[in-house]
């Protein structure tokens, strides 16, 4: 996926603004990166360079941190971030089946984003809702007891919402 020049500019500006509130104590590196990810949804290379310069550490160390922790993304997420829980209980109740349903429906693999940037697909280690297994988290909303047909339903519901929003924008048609 290509990151546009505007996105790069936005990333640099956002990161710089965030860094103003932090001193160069190395304990702040991860909190800063978390903030960047919160704002942008991912941490691009340009943001890593900014952070590295601020803390006087090599950029590669920041890259090391980003790739060590599962939470950080290197590419922009979709508008709907679908996270499939891969905890024990979810696994035993068919999380891999749910994963395949999403992959099949969206025509992308785990870790990818659809071309229209509508959906991205990720896995998470246990969100702690084991009693509701299998669980899928879409943005911040948790959906429990998912089945392949529920997956279709969730995608369809989103399509309807989009359609409504479109029609709402042009009411006289």
């Amino acid at each position: 996926m290509k990151i546009t020049e505007e996105e790069k500019k936005l990333a640099i500006e956002t990161t710089r603004r965030l860094l103003e509130t932090y001193n160069d104590n190395q304990g702040n590196v991860i909190p800063v990166l978390q903030q960047v990810q919160n704002k942008l949804g991912y941490v691009p290379a340009v943001a890593m360079e900014e952070v590295a310069a601020h803390f006087h550490i090599p950029s590669v160390d920041v890259y090391g941190i980003i790739t060590f922790y599962n939470q950080f993304r290197l590419t922009p997420p979709g508008k709907h971030q679908v996270k499939i829980c891969m905890g024990t209980a979810c696994h035993m109740r068919g999380a891999h089946i749910i994963q395949e349903s999403w992959e099949r429906r969206l025509n992308i693999k785990l870790g990818e984003t659809t071309k229209d940037r509508e959906y991205s697909l990720e896995r998470v280690a246990c969100v702690g809702c084991c009693t509701m297994a299998p669980v899928v988290v879409i943005n911040d909303e948790i959906h429990g007891k998912i089945t392949p047909t529920r997956v279709d339903g969730l995608i369809f519901a989103n399509q309807l919402d989009n359609q409504k929003a479109k029609e709402g924008a042009a009411p006289n048609e």
């Binding site: 190395q26 991860i30 909190p31 990166l33 978390q34 060590f68 922790y69 599962n70 950080f72 998470v124």
Partner: peptide, 25 residues
């Protein structure tokens, strides 16, 4: 509060400390 970043090994105490010090856990 210090927020973890999604690494299972950080439940181990010395890795947890490393992560709080801004290092890989």
């Amino acid at each position: 509060i210090f927020q973890g970043s999604g690494a299972f090994v950080c439940g181990e105490e010395s890795a947890l400390i490393a992560s709080m010090e801004g290092q890989p856990g």
